[in-house]
Write a protein that binds this DNA or RNA. Structure first.
Lengths: 148, 148
DNA sequence: TTCGGGATGTTATACTATTACGGCTAAGTA
DNA sequence: TACTTAGCCGTAATAGTATAACATCCCGAA
């Protein structure tokens, strides 16, 4: 059985950090540090203080196994396709789910666009808010809107 | 003298809210709510509690006179050119300054890119980190890097 | 064995943001 | 005029997010 990138990355972390990843990965919505600490049973497996959670989150961020959703102060698992590349986080205001959409091309355009004004580009964070496909089709009240 | 959009917007807010805008506009770096409250002399002009600052900030955000930099929990004034449109916030890790770069074209491409997966796009937030032009040329250690 | 460094545990604190409630004032109206 | 209501502002309390500082343990290198 071939090892996936994700598994090889997880091999490097402690069991507790792995557990944090599993909770985030299995959640349908982004989880905050305190969601993990209080609502999930991370206390049951030995996490007692925020610091511990943040340390685990930092490792997972460094390994690019998770993203921080800055506008929600919460964390989501990376989708499989873009583990190396930039992505867009699309946050549904209705159901709360976040899609992690690979965005290689877009990153290239951003680089061109900011070009001279900002030559030392290192990190790119794109977050969208709106209504996802599922919620749009389920709820006829909610219709496509334009970028503000 | 013709009224600019900025001035007509500011005409709608209270003197204290206007003062908050002036501090943000004149600052070289993004300011947090508590920077405004404590470090600047907003206490001197009658602000006593965070709530008051946040109320003023909300008005300014609603009028699109300022942006929130989500990854810093801080606020910057909008540049003049894009008061209606989407923009990119480019944050320099070296000097702390944030450039607000108009990005109409990019917003259009984002819409195309996420298209079917996220039809109800309403808000778009793009933040970059890296090194700005000034810091790149001043400091030869710091060279252009690639998007991670 | 001893030293040093990295991971982990623990406590405290800093930083960010909102809720709740009460008073004041301005505009509408019987 | 008196009443009402809605919005703005003041104040206090609290909720939510994140880090600092320091102790401890464990393991590998000298």
């Amino acid at each position: 059985m071939q090892e996936t990138p994700k598994e090889s990355k997880l091999a490097k972390v402690s069991p507790k950090t792995r557990k944090v990843f599993e909770f985030i990965e299995s959640s349908k919505s982004p989880l905050g540090a305190y969601d993990l600490l209080n609502d999930q049973n991370l206390r049951a497996i030995g996490f007692k203080a925020p610091t511990q959670i943040y340390r685990a989150l930092k490792q997972l961020l460094d390994l690019r196994l998770i993203h921080k959703v800055e506008s929600l102060n919460a964390f989501v698992a990376c989708c499989k396709e873009h583990e190396k590349g930039p992505s867009i986080l699309a946050i549904c205001d209705n159901c709360g789910q976040v899609q992690d959409i690979p965005a290689e091309d877009l990153a290239a355009q951003v680089k061109r666009e900011v070009g001279k004004k900002f030559p030392g580009l290192k990190e790119l964070n794109i977050e969208l808010k709106g209504v996802c496909e599922d919620c749009t089709s389920e709820d006829s009240e909610v219709q496509a809107a334009t970028v503000s």
